[in-house]
């Protein structure tokens, strides 16, 4: 028995003396960032894995659908832009027949948001890939019934928000002093007592970009139509795409 204890003591002494202490005390931290640049060789096994996925996408996306004689951008105007006008006009023209067939009513105007336009459309061949770049999100078109009063709030929001949100079917003129000079819907002055069918995205309907006035919608119709699909459908129908900056929203000088 005493022998065993003796062993144990010898063992403990030796191991205490010789064994290392815990190497768990943080001594130094070094932080940096490494750019993923062309000089780094791409991994062949990853390339081979991605290749079939990429081929299928390219086949679908890169066939020419239309032609743009000049570049379409969301930053080429202060109150309305070529990209914004194109997008809002597309939503109006493509969603209208579906909404009409479902409800017997017409869409009065369209409001989208500037932030959702994610890319320019470069001059030249227009493809479905452009539609994905412009609108990568899976947002759908919804139609909200808004009172004339809510539309007035919507217009005040447009005036104050400071970015050219895309509109179509709605005309807003501001005075030199930034007051509202006129609001026209489908060419007619806004009537406070009327109800208007406003096409927008489901994202904005639910309060995205602080568009709180959509909370007052008296009715909402979801036509189960993605904005991007509307864009692709439009590109497939037309030969050339030539949106202009026009007088749908401006401030008098």
């Amino acid at each position: 028995m005493s022998l065993k204890i003796e062993h144990f003591v010898i063992f403990l002494t030796i191991s205490c003396f010789l064994s290392c202490r815990d190497v768990t005390s943080l001594a130094k931290i070094q932080g940096r960032q490494i750019g993923i640049e062309a000089s780094i060789k791409a991994s062949d096994s990853i390339e081979n894995f991605v290749s079939p996925y990429r081929k299928r996408i390219d086949a679908v996306l890169d066939s020419a659908l239309a032609y743009a004689p000049s570049t379409i951008s969301k930053t080429d105007g202060k109150y309305n832009t070529t990209a914004g006008n194109l997008l809002a006009d597309i939503v109006l023209s493509e969603a209208e027949p579906i909404f009409r067939s479902r409800t017997g009513e017409d869409i009065d105007f369209v409001l989208l948001n500037h932030g959702s336009i994610r890319s320019i459309i470069s001059k030249g061949k227009v493809t479905a890939r452009n539609a994905y770049e412009v609108m990568p999100f899976e947002n759908s078109i919804v139609i909200a019934a808004l009172s004339g009063k809510s539309v007035q709030n919507l217009v005040l929001y447009l005036r104050d928000y400071g970015v050219p949100h895309p509109i179509s079917g709605l005309q807003v003129v501001l005075t030199k002093e930034n007051e509202i000079q006129s609001i026209r819907i489908q060419g007619k002055p806004l009537n406070e007592k009327d109800t208007y069918n406003v096409a927008t995205s489901d994202y904005l309907l639910n309060g995205g970009d602080d568009m709180v006035f959509f909370k007052d919608a008296t009715q909402v119709t979801n036509i189960d139509y993605k904005i991007r699909n509307a864009i692709i459908d439009y590109f497939s129908k037309v030969d050339t795409i030539t949106p202009d900056i026009d007088d749908r929203f401006y401030r008098m000088e």
Partner: peptide, 23 residues
Amino acid sequence: NLGRIDFYFDSNTSRTAEGVSIM
């Protein structure tokens, strides 16, 4: 980009927080 943070440990348990060198 890829972020890279390297942490080095040793057995000096008496080091204070100020003693950890950050580069």
